[in-house]
Design a protein around this nucleic acid. Structure first.
Length: 423
DNA sequence: TCTGGGGTCCTAGGACCC
DNA sequence: TCTGGGGTCCTAGGACCC
């Protein structure tokens, strides 16, 4: 039988690598990228990891370390990262049409059918090409299944002797890799299940693979646990899905730059998040039948706490930003309580259906042709002239009161004419 | 002073139907 | 005294991922 060969290509410290691309002076310096509002570290180079700055560490807690060690710290610049991600993926497409873009910085490649002896060299060639074309360094893991490719990828990144590419197709490599991989490092096993596995005496990936009582695994760790075990046994359970399925939910939420006390500001923020979410909804050619909102105070602060979510349904599913904002405002009136110091608001669109195939209500209001055309025009203008070109009035004109803080943001080298790199 | 955002899948249990 | 059984659908909550 022709056994599967799967390669996982993963960009190294992706956001940091993107920032370094335009700042060659940072090549050997520690670099970190922060989450929105300059809150926590979401990407770190090896130099920064070595300084003991953990993933998710709040910036203000480690600022001293950063200052002392001249760490280059950036606010997240997502338009830049998305753009570079596209370039990486386009390069990968040149090597195989059978590719799953798994996240902004990762892709699974189906290399089934390649000569097993050659596939490692081929992946080295892929790695060099991506780095030459885009400037983004990557690591590659090669295996029979996704879970094992993930495992191999970890080793490719950690063990310098691999020079960034590691294959566990050969039995000896596979055994060694399984043996030295902690059970908690296996893809799909998080904090809770890590503890549960250890209590069962399963410490390593190898232990899980060789654990005979599969019924117990199924019972304790559900179907997913069983599938992970099978994947460790080189039985593929998670296929490569080339076409991304439609999103079943679309969320948009942000923490505020400054605490919000007034319902008016809350409304403006919700209107902006709703606009973002609806744009995504229309982009995947969908409509939604349910909208929910969520508001909360800052749980880290020692102040009176409040959080609440609420949802409403439409008679006919819609993708009209105006209707969704209107509904969101009605919901907000029901849960907003004066006197709290709000930190965050969110909107979620759910019960998502295809725009062309959804049921419409016989009598209730529905999206008319004119509504849809208006939304299309808005999307087109914003795509051409920038997201802020045309917006619903309810979004307000002064975001400063609540918009997130980004004091360390790099220029939009690739997406803003005024911010192109100057040489 | 300062702690992210956006998703998916699975299961148990209740509602409901015949 | 004694009160069926099987199926489907939906939801909330938990766990995981990047």
């Amino acid at each position: 039988m022709n056994q599967k060969i799967i390669a996982l290509v993963d960009c190294n410290s992706f956001y940091c690598s993107c920032e370094r691309l335009f700042r060659p002076d940072l090549i050997n310096r520690p670099v970190g990228v922060l989450s929105n509002n300059d809150g926590c570290f979401v990407s770190r180079t090896n130099e920064l990891k070595k300084l003991g700055v953990a993933m998710g560490a709040p910036y203000f807690q480690v600022k001293d370390i950063c200052d002392k060690n001249k760490v280059a710290v950036f606010s997240a610049n997502f338009s830049l990262y998305t753009n570079l991600s596209d370039r990486v993926m386009n390069t990968l497409f040149e090597f195989t049409p059978s590719l799953e873009v798994y996240s902004v910085d990762e892709a699974f490649l189906d290399l089934t059918g390649f000569d097993e002896l050659m596939v490692e060299d081929y992946c080295r060639h892929i790695k060099e090409t991506v780095e030459r074309n885009t400037g983004i360094p990557v690591g590659i893991g090669i295996a029979r299944t996704k879970v094992l490719a993930k495992l191999a990828n970890r080793i490719a990144k950690k063990d310098e002797r691999t020079k960034g590419v590691f294959s566990v197709l050969k039995k000896a490599n596979l055994e060694a890799a399984l043996e030295k991989s902690d059970i908690g490092d296996v893809w799909g096993i998080g904090r809770q299940n890590n503890i549960k596995f250890k209590m069962l005496g399963i410490q390593s990936a190898k232990h899980l693979r060789d654990f005979q009582n599969t019924n117990l695994i199924q019972k304790q760790f559900t179907k997913v646990g069983r599938m992970i075990q099978d994947e460790l046994r080189e039985v593929s359970c998670f296929p490569i899905t080339e076409i991304a399925p439609r999103k079943k939910e679309i969320m948009s939420s942000r923490s505020f730059g400054n605490p919000v006390f007034e319902i008016n500001l809350m409304r403006e923020s919700l209107a902006c998040y709703a606009s973002l979410a609806c744009e995504k909804l229309r982009k995947q050619h969908s409509v939604c039948q349910e909208v929910s909102i969520y508001i909360c105070t800052n749980p880290f602060k020692n102040i009176p706490q409040y959080s609440k979510s609420i949802s409403a349904s439409f008679e006919s599913a819609t993708c009209d930003t105006r209707k969704i904002i209107k509904e969101a405002f009605k919901l907000l009136d029901q849960i907003f309580i004066n006197g709290f110091e709000y930190k965050k608001a969110a909107i979620r669109l759910s019960k998502i259906q295809d725009q062309d195939e959804h049921q419409i209500s016989l009598f209730g209001p529905r999206d008319t042709k004119e509504d849809l055309i208006l939304m299309q025009i808005m999307d087109k203008i914003n795509a051409r002239d920038g997201d802020e070109a045309l917006k619903i009035a309810a979004c307000g004109t002064n975001k400063n009161a609540w918009f997130m803080k980004q004091t360390l943001k790099s220029p939009r080298y690739l997406t803003g004419w005024s911010e192109l790199l100057k040489i």
